[in-house]
Design a binder for these strands. Structure first.
Lengths: 144, 144
DNA sequence: CAAATATAATTGATATATCAATTAAATATA
DNA sequence: TATATTTAATTGATATATCAATTATATTTG
């Protein structure tokens, strides 16, 4: 069964799926029970502790409802701690637990290695060109 | 909240999400109750009626289990007809209903228009370069 | 041919995606 | 200040994602 792809969107989709699968496999070699998106959420919260759930949702391209449930799970797994923010009682203060920080530490070298492998033999210029073309597409779509 | 993206994978993900959202909106202007993936499945089955569910799953980057359920739904909505294949009773024969074909006909011009808008101002060479770079990444990841 | 193996699809369990409706708190406005 | 509006998060319903186990049929092998 060989059916040619008709559009570059097929390739884009395939790239993301392949990278996610690849990442997940290598994540699981060093940490149990983590997903690519959970790692992303941990990273954002670690770097920017003031982020609200809605803001994180936007950063990881998900719905607020999904974020609520994912963070519930991550609290349940002991990666995060959710507490009331006295400055604005609508939004929570979400912090990494020591276990959450440990996960990030264990994954850090894996991330570096994953990217290195993904971009092997591709020059910085080529990557910038890739990024530029994709941003043109995004911009085109947002202007309608 | 402005947080710089750290990797091109963020941009790739954003491109796909943006295009899917864009497509969905325009699909719904001409057909009720259709998703981007359902459209893809209809198209593949229309062009290659001999495809098995597993083969379609691979083409649309989904799990066999998901395909089973999606096709159930699409049969329920009257887009597809599933019948036993006497040549191999394990796999089904899946055909588009007249309603399914009508959906594709209504969507055809929308697809063309969507792609045209997405790629506005981007040369054929640039798109080929995009495709080539992405394929390098895929190939890198598959060689580990 | 009979038994073992492989293949296609389904099912169950749990997580995530999506949309609409709801709740609670904060902010704006009459 | 009281009311209206906005914002952040949750919940419910349904669809999809993922993995493991299962079922039915085909194919291979002894």
């Amino acid at each position: 069964m060989k059916i040619p792809a008709k559009t570059v969107f097929y390739t884009i989709e395939r790239t993301i799926k392949t990278y996610r699968k690849f990442s997940k496999q290598h994540f699981l070699e060093v940490v149990d029970d983590i997903t690519v998106d959970q790692k992303l959420i941990l990273q954002y919260l670690n770097d920017h502790p003031e982020l609200s759930q809605n803001e994180i949702a936007e950063l990881v391209f998900k719905d607020n409802a999904s974020l609520t449930r994912m963070i519930d799970l991550m609290v349940g797994k002991g990666f995060l701690k959710r507490s009331i923010n006295p400055d604005d009682r609508r939004r929570f203060k979400i912090e990494l637990t020591p276990k959450g920080k440990e996960v990030l530490e264990k994954l850090a070298p894996v991330i570096v290695s994953n990217r290195k492998k993904a971009f092997a033999g591709i020059s910085q210029e080529e990557l910038m060109q890739l990024d530029a073309t994709l941003n043109k597409i995004i911009s085109n779509l947002n202007n309608y």
